[in-house]
């Protein structure tokens, strides 16, 4: 493939949306109340919609007429480039909101920068996506504040979720080979430069929510290189079941 770096770069962004979208989709009908249930599925829909746009573009780059579905459904675990954070399981609602918040804050910053890419298609997707992501960010930030500054129990549960998920945040800012190549030609975003601002903005929200910003310096990574946590296989089993059981099925 001629544009292999660009292809991998796009998957690095798209797979986050696909896998987090899939996680949120699992919650359809299981939200704590109707409004949050609908909100989570709406966010899921936005993310899947964004993933579709990226995959359609990536499909064209392969030069083999690969469809968005081929890319979304027919890869092996090692070929998915999403960060480990987004594949973490849905435990309780607070945990889901912390996962969402930590991702949305990064996602928004990434979209802001991607709007200035030299790649016209990525700019178009980012221009569209950022409007949606700003709603996601507002929704998850509000819940962090509400639960953090809520009861002693909600505060403890949220703090625990933050402490648990914090180790996945550093991975956002790692540059893969594809990232480096794309940054060099002005297409990709240098995510390593977003780090400082990310932690500053996240801490501001946590402070407002009367939560502690963790100080741990031990981080886990690997998702961007295709090395996933044990949860990923289960996600893919569900996501890919239909296409693998009935290849080329349509409805």
């Amino acid at each position: 493939m001629k544009n292999e770096n660009l292809y991998n770069y796009i998957l690095g962004i798209a797979d986050n949306s696909l896998i987090l979208g899939q996680r949120l989709g699992e919650l359809c009908g299981h939200g704590p109340n109707l409004e949050t249930d609908i909100a989570m599925t709406n966010i899921n829909l936005d993310l899947i919609g964004q993933a579709r746009s990226y995959y359609q573009y990536a499909g064209k780059l392969t030069g083999q007429d690969k469809s968005e579905d081929d890319i979304a459904f027919l890869r092996l675990e090692r070929e998915y480039r999403n960060v480990l954070l987004v594949e973490q399981p849905n435990t309780h609602f607070g945990y889901v909101m912390v996962r969402q918040f930590l991702f949305d804050m990064f996602h928004f910053m990434l979209m802001e920068k991607l709007q200035h890419s030299k790649d016209e298609t990525l700019v178009a997707i980012a221009n569209k996506g950022i409007k949606e992501v700003s709603y996601h960010k507002r929704f998850s930030s509000d819940w962090i504040k509400r639960l953090g500054d809520g009861t002693a129990e909600s505060n403890a549960k949220i703090q625990e979720a933050i402490n648990d998920l914090w180790r996945f945040t550093d991975e956002f800012f790692q540059l893969t080979e594809a990232d480096k190549a794309m940054v060099e030609v002005g297409i990709g975003v240098d995510v390593s430069k977003l780090k400082e601002d990310y932690y500053k903005k996240v801490s501001e929200v946590l402070e407002e929510a009367t939560l502690q910003t963790p100080e741990n310096k031990y981080f886990t990574k690997g998702g961007k290189e295709g090395l996933h946590t044990e949860h990923m296989g289960y996600i893919l089993a569900e996501l890919q079941y239909m296409q693998r059981t009935f290849p080329n099925m349509t409805w």
């Binding site: 409004e35 609908i38 909100a39 709406n42 966010i43 829909l45 936005d46 409007k131 949606e132 709603y135």
Partner: peptide, 28 residues
Amino acid sequence: VSQFGSTACKALFKCDDCQEPFDYFKCL
């Protein structure tokens, strides 16, 4: 009531006078 309504483009509101719940099409 909720930033997300029946579809991604809408938010859910409620009237405090007549108590009617209704959708609001969000500005984009």
